[in-house]
Design a protein around this nucleic acid. Structure first.
Lengths: 236, 236
DNA sequence: CAGTGGTCTAGACCACCCA
DNA sequence: GGGTGGTCTAGACCACTGA
């Protein structure tokens, strides 16, 4: 593990252990430099990482402060990539409905940047959170990248397998979000009425090298869907 | 403007001008260093900024590539802070329903970290996108920070005024997102039926120094709400 | 193994916050 | 004006990619 990642992890642990709250001040840079025997840039890099993750915010001329304005029961929409939910104290299980190798739909092929003649793994699952239906998921995996899947893997965490089993690194993802009335099939699997509200999210996942390997379409049960997102303003 | 921001801006412009597509390669670091007469770290910092914004991705040992997998008609959920929508080719207008100084609700006071006896500006607006109702918005501004608002400001872009008029810098925001059936009032303003799906987002906006100044509750018209989010995996 | 990006350092200097 | 974080540099060395 890299030095700056290690430092970031330890600072995060320090915040956790000392139960620091929103606005609490961390030690000054010089102290951190001494404590971790690292140069200023390395400490800064660790703090930048924590800032991206929404753990701290830095105020020039003033200090480094803890940021944790979370609410209970809300799932992080962004760290929602596969298996992180477990870590936030949500118990997620999956029921596999379909799993096979097939040709992709036009839509899936387009989003995965592959040909319609190439193979994909198709997975359809219902996910449960704390025993309630959370979402219906339909995923297409580029078979030339995700070379093998089976029922056992798919019942557990697919992303964990991609990371640890296949040794692939997920780099970034593009999410597209809409709200709609759910159709009959979605209603059936989610245990709701046809026409009920549904949060509909399509995501394209890419490896660190930019290749897209997964196109997923999820319909969330609106009764269970509470998400939070932490945004930074590099936008302005 | 800082050197690395300037460089980031120019690289973004270069991508735009040359109409580079997803996966296209940018010049190598050394070239960029020479071209902008900057050190490696400065170029890297500019590229990190662009990576955060979802404009490029960097692959070690290979190169720097363009990332633009956007879809037409989708609004960026994160750069949705106040006035950016204009820049994405959406025409947004507002109709002010209420604007006054009052005491905050318990909820607003809690989220703005102020006392219920302190004053807030309360704003209720309907926003229109390309002449269709986009959302109903209810906002509470901490009056000790946002010292003045009037009808003209509120009809235009409040965030533009906060930046340019008051000279305040927005730092980060916490968003909480749910899907619900809309109530009678929301239905009336959005021109929908009571019980129709609604995307409900609460956001707390903070200045760069961490002070929260705005607590907003938005209900989006599900027929107009298509959002995209670009995520990076510093999570894993 | 050449090309390319990533990490890390030491240090100079700058910019902002607050008392 | 003292304290604190941010920018920028030059350069050594490391790690991954792909032909």
């Amino acid at each position: 593990m890299l030095k700056y990642q290690q430092i970031a992890t330890e600072i995060e642990k320090y915040i956790e252990d000392n139960k620091l709250q929103q606005g609490n001040k961390l030690p000054v840079l010089e102290t951190l430099m001494a404590q971790f025997a690292a140069s200023k840039s390395t400490i800064t890099k660790a703090l930048d990482l924590l800032e991206k993750k929404g753990v701290v915010y830095q105020v020039r001329g003033s200090g480094i402060f803890v940021r944790r304005h979370k609410r209970k029961g809300y799932i992080s929409l962004l760290s929602n990539q596969g298996f992180k939910k477990e870590l936030e104290g949500f118990h997620i299980t999956s029921e596999v409905i379909e799993l096979d190798v097939r040709k992709p739909t036009e839509e899936a092929a387009y989003n995965l940047n592959m040909n319609v003649e190439d193979d994909v793994y198709y997975v359809k699952r219902v996910q449960y959170m704390n025993k309630k239906t959370l979402c219906l998921e339909e995923s297409f995996y580029n078979k030339s990248i995700i070379t093998y899947l089976n029922n056992e893997i798919v019942s557990d965490s697919i992303f964990k397998y991609i990371n640890e089993g296949l040794g692939l690194k997920v780099g970034f993802s593009d999410m597209f979000l809409q709200v709609n009335k759910i159709n009959e099939e979605e209603a059936k699997y989610l245990g709701l009425e046809t026409g009920a509200p549904g949060l509909y999210i399509e995501t394209i996942y890419h490896l660190t090298n930019g290749q897209s390997f997964d196109f997923s379409k999820l319909t969330y049960n609106y009764e269970q869907s509470q998400f939070f997102i932490q945004a930074n303003s590099h936008f302005l």
